[in-house]
């Protein structure tokens, strides 16, 4: 059945400088890169972004093909963005006259710009998720957000919830597969009928799955308590995050990329 085809997360295991970077730095650099992509005011200003993405792909041993996989689910949005911009933006020079509508040079350029911007945004984020295991990412987020504790932001609890979710997704998927099979054996049909019938057919799958998830949650809470879990207070950590040379170099490179973009914005 289709359920065990779902591979979890999109981490691409490899041993590279990019993989070994501090997740906190990676998250911050991603934010910087997103800002940089938005800063780029013309197509030429995308050149440093492309260069950075290509370099990161080479350094991390993650093939561009893997990164592009993240774009695929967004293809409709991309096409939509492109089409809307081409036809509805104002422009002066008529490039093609289709009769029912006109394509203007300026709007075409803008459409390409906006579409590429989306593509680059997706590529940049996949670069982070491809080179960082979800659990390390969670860890990085927790440390970055922990200063917000002063304003009572539950950074630790949030991270704990995320990591437990990561731990249990494979278990629950397996369970869903089993329940689905069991109900199929009782004549349930998950595959045919219209939308409403299909939604109704999910009840025998979803109810047991929820019941089981609640049972697991109860068990787990008890087990965590028995192992002395009492929130983030006074907790030490097995893994300590440390910034190294490669992190500093990455920051410098990012600064250069932003500078280059700003420069290209001016020039053109």
């Amino acid at each position: 059945m289709a359920l065990n085809d779902i591979t979890l997360g999109q981490y691409y295991p490899a041993d590279s400088a990019v993989h070994r970077m501090d997740p906190r730095v990676k998250i911050l650099l991603l934010i910087a890169l997103i800002v940089a992509i938005f800063l780029a005011g013309n197509l030429l200003a995308f050149v440093p972004v492309v260069a950075l993405l290509l370099a990161a792909s080479a350094l991390s041993h993650v093939p561009i093909r893997m990164m592009l996989k993240g774009v695929k689910p967004l293809r409709f949005i991309l096409v939509l963005t492109f089409v809307l911009n081409v036809f509805f933006l104002q422009g002066e020079t008529v490039l093609v006259d289709l009769g029912f509508a006109m394509i203007k040079t300026e709007s075409l350029i803008t459409a390409v710009h906006y579409t590429l911007r989306l593509v680059f945004l997706v590529l940049a984020s996949s670069l982070l998720t491809l080179t960082t295991p979800p659990i390390v990412l969670t860890d990085g987020l927790e440390r970055l957000l922990s200063p917000l504790r002063v304003v009572h932001f539950p950074a630790h609890e949030m991270a704990m919830m995320m990591s437990i979710a990561l731990r249990f997704i494979p278990t629950l998927l397996e369970e869903a597969d089993k329940i689905m099979k069991a109900q199929t054996a009782r004549g349930a049909d998950f595959e045919s009928g219209n939308l409403i019938q299909r939604a109704k057919a999910m009840v025998p799958l979803l109810v047991p799955l929820f019941v089981s998830a609640f049972r697991r949650a109860g068990d787990l809470a008890m087990a965590m308590e028995a192992r002395c879990y009492h929130g983030g207070e006074g907790r030490t950590r097995l893994r300590v995050l440390k910034c190294g040379q490669r992190d500093y170099i990455a920051c410098v490179v990012m600064a250069l990329v932003i500078a280059a973009i700003l420069l290209l914005n001016r020039v053109c």
Partner: peptide, 18 residues
């Protein structure tokens, strides 16, 4: 329902961290 972490080693560490 009693293992918390996604890696064995980190699960063993859970109690120690607590």
């Amino acid at each position: 329902n009693q293992l918390v972490a996604t890696v064995v080693e980190e699960d063993v560490a859970f109690g120690l961290e607590n």
